[in-house]
Design a protein around this nucleic acid. Structure first.
Length: 260
DNA sequence: ATGGCCGTGAAACACGGA
């Protein structure tokens, strides 16, 4: 069973890119972020035509998350991250597929920092940690996939000083991500590729793709009951080099022997 | 020190992104 996460940066702007990648790689589950589409603008028939059932939560212009399942209908369990009823940003959706609870999340960017956006980022990560802890205590198979907007360690970014003041690399952001790992989640990409440099995002500016000046921002956190089945992981980085590409590349994990 | 490249919404440029 292959599960992928892809910050699509506008699902309608990049629908052809998405369909091409789906056809080539045939993931069983896809977590999408940055739909930049309202609920009504979600390309339901195109996604269905590609053989995927879907649940989504859209928003005008920004954010927006979805979960796609090949030949199945995801069973929606949540459309918001608990802990702040006043937060209306579409950054979290959760559904059950093939006996695994899947979350597609889009953490706040947090720039500029310091400032209200960074405060919101850290508060959102606290809420995520609280919810993730609740989920873990249930003892069920869970995958938290998405754009965490955190560079976990210095080796997860190309050698540069230009990001020193960026929210993605601040100690508070890294502590938030490390706090999730300390709960017992497994960083699947790091687990499978422990010694390798892995990037999932390359800024559009300054030829960062051509220079491979990337960042690792898109992560899979696996609960122990899923981590036992983890067999492979990778980044479809060729997708980043195509015409009209998102600035993120699809990232994926493979579970062997699941469903049991 | 700055802007650099994009998408959306709106109809020029503001804003968010990372």
């Amino acid at each position: 069973m292959k599960i992928a996460t892809f910050n699509i940066n506008g699902i309608n702007k990049r629908l052809d890119n998405l369909l091409e990648w789906l056809g080539e790689t045939e993931p069983d589950v896809v977590c999408l972020q940055e739909l930049k589409a309202t609920d009504a603008q979600f390309p339901r028939s195109a996604v269905e035509g590609a053989g995927y059932g879907a649940v989504w939560r859209g928003q005008s212009a920004w954010n927006g998350v979805a979960i796609l399942a090949r030949g199945a209908e995801p069973v929606l369990t949540r459309q918001e991250l608990p802990g702040d009823p006043s937060d209306t940003q579409a950054r979290y959706i959760e559904a059950a597929v093939n006996g695994i609870l899947i979350a597609s999340l889009y953490a706040p960017n947090g720039n500029p920092q310091p400032g209200p956006k960074f405060t919101y980022k850290l508060a959102w990560m606290k809420r995520l940690e609280a919810h993730a802890g609740e989920l873990l205590s249930a003892g069920v198979p869970i995958v938290l996939a998405g754009d965490y907007n955190v560079v976990p360690e210095p080796r997860d970014i190309y050698p540069t000083r230009s990001y020193d003041d960026n929210a993605l690399v601040q100690p508070q952001s890294r502590v938030a991500f490390a706090g999730l790992l300390a709960q017992g989640w497994v960083d699947a990409i790091r687990e499978i590729l422990p010694g390798e440099t892995v990037y999932t995002f390359w800024d559009y500016r300054r030829n960062r793709w051509q220079r491979n000046a990337g960042l690792r921002l898109d992560h899979f956190l696996l609960s122990p009951k899923v981590a036992r089945f983890l067999a492979d992981a990778g980044v479809d980085s060729n997708t980043r080099g195509r015409p009209n590409a998102s600035d993120h590349a699809p990232t994926w994990i493979e579970l062997n022997g699941w469903p049991e």
